[in-house]
Amino acid sequence: MVTSLYGAVEQGLIYAIMALGVYLTFRILDFPDLTVDGSFVTGGAVSAVMIVNGYDPFVSILAGGLIGFFAGCVTGILHTHGKINPLLSGIIMMIALYSINLRIMGKPTIPLLNETTWFKQIGTWWEQSGIDAAIFSLFSSMGMEEYMPKTFLVIFSMMLLVMIIKKMMDWLLATEAGLALRATGDNDRMAKSFSANTKGYIIIGLGISNGMVAVSGAMITHYNGFADINLGIGMIIVGLASVIIGEGLFGKDKMARATLAVILGAIIYRIIISLALRMDFFDASDMKLITAVIVVGALVIPVWWRQFRDRKKRMARKKEIDAQEQTHTEGASQIATTEAD
């Protein structure tokens, strides 16, 4: 039970990079970008092929991100210069990338079990550092051996990496160019009237978003130990679920707060999924359905809750008036009877 939670947190941290990318398009640019389903796999595919061919794992992740960046830019160009509807541009790229990903990989799955993945690479350094050993001795001194994960490597390294990416994103969105990017999504007519090349910002924004998605896909590939052509199916919904859960639970007032909320949302989403899958009733194949239900729930429950609360408030107020009226009429009828007497 507890050990599976470690796995959920690990995966949540890796998927958080993807969720931040989705946040950039969905919320900042107001562009529902479905390229994600394809670019997530593209990152994994490029990285896996490069590792098999002996490239450095970290370089392969960056390369995957770069190709994802270009894929996102193409979606942006389809929309801005081809005047294709945003949803359709994304779907077109998603479909195109499916074939491209197969071309890159050459086969539907690439196993990386005997290859040096990024986690294996930093793992040797991690063991030397002795941090795991120190934490484990702490656990056993408290008599909690059974609650120990195999290693804290993924959690620590990903936490560091995700925080770096978050900080970079916060910084970028506060720069002059970042403000123009946000204005493009917020009010594009106004952005244009203040010299912002909105088409350019949409293209670059989609590029950065899909670059992040592809990096996340590459890292998941390293984490899983294989690349799979179908890994990206429904990824956009996973990203969206993370964004919505995060915003709902942790707020979205300030930029830095919102990006943190998205990261936490991604982790919580993974925890919910892992808890749901522990129920005997569900199979691993039910994950997409569970995801759909989570997204619907996250979208609908707050709205219903607000309606319910407002209704209760209104009813309470109306009762007050009813009560006032009643005392009034009672008083009046009393006066009437006394007069009649």
């Binding site: 002059e176 203040f194 912002a196």
Partner: peptide, 19 residues
């Protein structure tokens, strides 16, 4: 942030903080 954006009307936008 809106005022910083308006400031960018006359010159090229940089990667320096807007505000």
């Amino acid at each position: 942030e809106n005022l910083a954006l308006a400031l960018g009307r006359t010159k090229k936008r940089s990667l320096l903080p807007g505000v």
